[in-house]
């Protein structure tokens, strides 16, 4: 019976997916429970901040600049038709602060820092470093996972803010310096339309949520990876795919909650 067989394999996949969600949640709660070390010995977290945050700086800044420049160019072409080029600043800033900053920065973060985290922890597991740590009576979740988690959670909003800030300058560069939109109206209309609480803080909250989710997925996939070369490479791919999907879905949900009725 091929139909029954297919149904059964679908069912099995669904069950195992739900199972993994449960496992990941327990892993997340364990990480929170064992987070004391990350703050008591903050230099552990600082070390991870370097490899997640600082190492992602260049890609975030370059990407932010170009995204802002594209927004400036496209926005100008569209707004010109309605004679409202002066709203270019509004368009660039709102697009970046509300959506593109948090989302694109999180996607880049997932593929730059998230995949590196998964590969590193997966390899640590494959080379028995995690078992070794357990045998030394040191909890690997407290010592390895939690500092990386907090580094991810802290760096994501900062990276998203830098992405948006650089992007606004990219839009300014193309719109004002290259094309010649009026500088005064570019900034003043932007300031009039972008609200600190409504737009900027909500963007920060978004990137905070994305940072948490991406980091948990990356760490869980690494910790859960089969200790082989294929296991680690598969886990790395899954980190990028799963966290990208999670970012986009969560973005829709958060946007619906935050900006409804405006």
């Amino acid at each position: 019976m091929p139909v029954a067989k297919n149904l059964r394999s679908i069912g099995r996949r669904v069950v195992s997916a739900v199972w993994r969600v449960g496992l990941a949640t327990r892993f997340f709660l364990l990480t929170l429970a064992y987070s004391g070390t990350s703050f008591r010995r903050f230099h552990l977290t600082i070390k991870e901040l370097f490899s997640t945050g600082v190492m992602s700086l260049i890609i975030i800044i370059v990407a932010g600049l170009f995204v802002g420049m594209v927004l400036g160019l496209q926005g100008y072409e569209t707004l010109k038709r309605y004679g409202s080029e002066s709203a270019l600043g509004v368009m660039v800033a709102l697009g970046l602060v509300r959506e593109l900053g948090p989302v694109v920065a999180a996607l880049l973060f997932a593929s730059r820092a998230g995949s590196a985290m998964t590969a590193e922890i997966g390899l640590m597991k494959a080379t028995e470093q995690i078992t070794a740590m357990e045998m030394m009576a040191v909890n690997p979740i407290a010592r390895i996972v939690a500092p990386r988690f907090w580094a991810g959670v802290i760096s994501m909003p900062l990276l998203a803010a830098m992405f948006s800030a650089v992007g606004v300058f990219g839009g300014y560069f193309v719109g004002v310096i290259q094309i010649g939109v009026d500088e005064g109206s570019f900034w003043s209309q932007m300031q009039a339309a972008v609200d600190f609480r409504e737009d900027i803080l909500n963007g920060v909250i978004k990137s905070f949520v994305f940072g948490t989710v991406v980091t948990v997925i990356a760490l869980f996939e690494g910790y859960d990876a089969p200790p082989t070369a294929e296991g680690v490479s598969g886990a790395t791919t899954r980190t990028v795919v799963t966290s990208s999907l999670a970012i986009l879905m969560l973005d829709f949900i958060l946007t619906a909650i935050m900006f409804r009725g405006n």
Partner: peptide
């Protein structure tokens, strides 16, 4: 910068 220059 976002708060002061971009926002209100």
């Amino acid at each position: 910068m976002l708060a002061m220059k971009v926002g209100n």
